[in-house]
């Protein structure tokens, strides 16, 4: 098995546990921002490592990053 796949898997697992811990342990005004930031990191990990978007043409990378950026900014600005 590829080392980068294993590392990505472990990081995604840790990020998921972290978002759960933040949710349970810290109810501040920034909890939503932290949870969304962790979700964005996980999204990037899956897209760029598991889906191998890192190997793709810049067009596809920019497209997915733009979607992620617009979605996150709109959610945060509405809350």
């Amino acid at each position: 098995m590829n080392v980068s796949t294993i590392v990505t898997g472990v990081i995604l697992f840790v990020l998921t546990i972290m978002s759960a811990l933040f949710f349970l342990g810290m109810q501040s005004m920034y909890t939503v921002h932290i949870i969304l930031a962790l979700a964005v990191l996980k999204f990037g990990g899956v897209a760029f490592q598991f889906m191998e978007l890192k190997k793709a043409h810049a067009f596809w990378k920019i497209l997915i990053l733009s979607f992620l950026f617009i979605f996150t900014v709109l959610v945060i600005s509405m809350l």
Partner: peptide
């Protein structure tokens, strides 16, 4: 995510 990990593998 575990399922996705095995798909990547």
């Amino acid at each position: 995510l575990t399922s996705g990990f095995f798909m990547a593998a």
